[in-house]
Amino acid sequence: MFGYIVRRLIAGVLVLIAVSMMVFAIFFYGPNDPALAYCPESRCTPQRLDNLRHNLGLDRPAPQQYVEYMSGLVKSRHIESGGISIDCNWPCLGVSFKYRVSVFHYLWDRFPATFSVAAGGAICFLIIGLFSGIFAARRRGTMADKAIVSTSLFINAIPYYLLALLAYLYLVQGLGLFPETGYHSPFKDGPFKFVGGLALPWLMLGIAYSTQYARFSRGAMVDALNEDYVRTARAKGLMERVVVRRHALRAAIVPVVTIFGLDFAYLLAGTLFTEKIFGIQGMGLAGLDAVQRTDLPMISAYTLISAAFIVVANIVVDILYSVIDPRVRLA
């Protein structure tokens, strides 16, 4: 098990290095000249552009620049950026063209907001999705089952941004059923403000994501209920409640864990629409902002961090597998 985790971590690091190289290649060979970002359009002479390039170290060979870029992962750097020099503390993924601060720390500051949205949303969609899925599976073919499946398909057909936007406009702006949304630190501003600001985003994420979890867990549960060992459990004379929970659900949860792991990783990387619509200053919004402003160091850092989440989520899912299913041996 230990060897397996170490091997997977090494493989994960290799993936991240590959991602960083690609990100760097886009940065370096992409259509946007980073120097232009520092060069005011009105007074940008070729001479000045060259100076900037030299200043930023862009005229040095690519491998050298890459090594320098990556060195930020092990030590603090001192970056000359557009004439001024900026301290970039470890871990350093570069300095934002726009804000002139370490991009990693800029994004990291926004992580609590994103994490709160993701975790709360995940709890909502897991509860709604699993309960309705299992409920439907146990009443397969009945009206209740059909109602759940068609409701989930109907919600799925509405674009998420539309659903969230309408909810915001009607429930917050119009009816005032929910307080103004946004992220408030539970430590500084108190838990009530924290929950109040995020309640609607959580609910919206819960509804939107739960549709696929409902259908997925319904399918897994229908399969599990048809398994021979569930029939054995019934034949033993166990109570139906025990049969469903201890025997069928335990098996049905395995495939759900897989998609949940990846979904949660994506959520951690930032839920763009949610943050934008509900005005939450999270990582997704920062990423969007960086794209709009061609803030290349920010985009690269954002991509790398997202990739890291997905790599870690995959490892966690595989470890969870072995915990749930004793046949899976991590060797």
């Binding site: 398994e227 021979d228 060992y229 029939r231 054995t232 459990a233 034949a235 025997h247 335990r250 098996a251 749930i324 299913d325 004793p326 046949r327």
Partner: peptide, 12 residues
């Protein structure tokens, strides 16, 4: 007693 004990016993 069922036919296939591999599938009739709960694997977990």
């Amino acid at each position: 007693i069922f036919q296939d004990p591999l599938t009739a016993l709960h694997p977990f």
